[in-house]
Design a binder for these strands. Structure first.
Lengths: 213, 213
DNA sequence: AGTTTTATGTGATTTTTTTCACATAAAACT
DNA sequence: AGTTTTATGTGAAAAAAATCACATAAAACT
């Protein structure tokens, strides 16, 4: 299946908008409703859907339940996605306690840290030593990891993850990582995100930036 | 000044790559070195620089110190940027203790929460009631906010921030916000970022995704 | 049953972004 | 001093992404 990275991100955004609309009692949406709720162009919505083979009803729009089901299937939400967390610092710990993932059927099944003082195998989400990480990944066939270790340890930790069988990583360490082509890495750089805001606010380039977020 | 959103994000990435190179003792870079370190195309580096009026030396590349200084000026790093944090939940609290911002000359000067039990005006970064937020913003002329409140409270909190004078927001609540055109909102959606990873790992679209992060 | 309305789905178009490729000029070498 | 080398800076080209615009078909209305 052919898809732009942006289409995938938008798919996720549509899902969230649809859930919101559904919670308010809406049962049917049109591309312009949804576009408005998601902050995009109506044609974009339809184009995205056509890319993913989602179709609606001529003149009738889309039934929210059906549409949500299709999007959730595409985003693999039909079963719980097990993820491991590596690095139990500020960000890591926040993600461990973050409730946003589980409502999206994403479950952090274990955390790993290099600092023995942070370990706790009895916690709701057990925190193990990084020494046990490789075997845990193999035994449980984990494919997804959240990397929240210090910048200096990031690349070697990633290499270890990859060699153990991890295929996708959400990286919070502020460093550009290298990995084989079949590994998908999504870099979430908090400093960078905030710096972008600062740039648009204080440079006289304000008119450029998007005003929806 | 004319600039693509992506150029700005890349500027931030170049800065981080340059700092890394500098810390290893490098004093001069060429567009292809830097491109490699930042994970982009060399022509892209030069184009970006030309957009921002940064120039190097024919055949001589760029002096890291000069280049860094120019980029940091563009990104307003010459003085500490005061930011307020709204919402002291998991994510908010992690950001409060996160050390990544201060090394980038970004300082969270105060936090605000609606829950009186969380308040602590004696903490290193004081946590005040949201009731005091508007006056704090006005008195201290704060322009930047990190929004980490629950989705349901996000839009009204944003409206309050905007009316108090906030011009740029990093939004962590999983909802698309509306604001006037002169307000810059950067939406950091953690669920979405992880869902994107899941999509690329489990759909047969793996070949599409970028492998640098 | 026929007409009108209206929202989808998509080819065509436009806009944006990235990459190519080369003229240029500074440095290095002879 | 002249030649060669090499990396910048930028127009031109290509690629990617977003938007337009309209044919189409289903629904609603008469």
């Amino acid at each position: 299946m052919y898809a732009f990275k942006n289409s995938v991100t938008r798919l996720s955004r549509y899902k969230s908008a649809l859930k919101r609309l559904k919670s308010v009692g809406v049962v049917k949406v049109f591309s312009d409703n949804l576009a408005d709720a998601a902050g995009v162009n109506p044609a974009q919505v339809r184009k995205d859907f056509s890319v993913f083979g989602i179709s609606g009803n001529k003149k009738g729009g889309y039934q929210i339940d059906e549409l949500l089901a299709e999007i959730e299937t595409l985003l693999c939400k039909d079963k719980v996605q097990p993820v491991i967390l590596v690095g139990n610092g500020n960000i890591g710990n926040a993600l461990l306690n973050y409730t946003g993932f589980e409502k999206e059927n994403i479950k952090i099944v274990a955390a790993f840290d290099a600092d023995d003082n942070k370990l706790n195998s009895e916690a709701t989400v057990p925190i193990y030593s990084v020494d046990e990480m490789e075997s845990f990944i193999r035994e449980n066939q984990i494919k997804l990891a959240i990397l929240a270790v210090p910048a200096l340890a990031a690349q070697e930790t990633l290499d270890l993850l990859v060699s153990a069988g991890i295929k996708g990583v959400m990286n919070f360490s502020p460093i550009s990582l290298r990995a084989p082509d079949d590994i998908y890495i999504n870099h979430v750089d908090l400093e960078m995100e905030l710096e972008t805001v600062i740039f648009y606010v204080f440079s006289n380039a304000n008119a450029e930036g998007p005003q929806r977020g």
